[in-house]
């Protein structure tokens, strides 16, 4: 199982990194999205896939054995939501940058720094 997820993570990282290295700002956005997915899956897999049982204690029980690790899940949950906020902010920021610099080419934008 780990091998399969490891390959998926590798592909998401490779494609994401390739996309954020493009000069077209729109591709940068897609790259951020791919990387975000890759990171979520990475944290999830590092928690080990030992059980597919949700970490929920059944009614009447006091504890649970053999469960999927809840700690990475909690981390990913907030990461997903924050990822949304960051994505929205990046979109608006990029849009403003495009408007101010009048180009969709990341390479051209640095000229306005000087």
């Amino acid at each position: 199982m780990e091998l399969l997820l490891a390959v998926v993570i590798g592909v998401l990282y490779a494609t994401g990194i390739y996309m954020i290295m493009r000069r077209s700002i729109m591709k940068l956005i897609i790259g951020i999205g791919l990387l975000a997915h890759g990171a979520d899956l990475l944290i999830f897999t590092l928690g080990r896939i030992e059980s597919t049982k949700p970490p929920i204690i059944a009614a009447g029980e006091e504890s649970i054995t053999n469960y999927a690790d809840p700690v990475p899940q909690a981390l990913i949950l907030t990461a997903i939501v924050i990822g949304f906020g960051v994505m929205a902010f990046a979109l608006v920021l990029f849009r403003e940058t495009v408007r101010v610099s009048d180009t969709g080419d990341v390479q051209e934008m640095r000229l306005s720094d000087r």
Partner: peptide, 12 residues
């Protein structure tokens, strides 16, 4: 608190 769900999911 007891089943899948919570503030994040509910809010979304």
């Amino acid at each position: 608190h007891n089943e899948p769900g919570g503030g994040f999911t509910g809010g979304l």
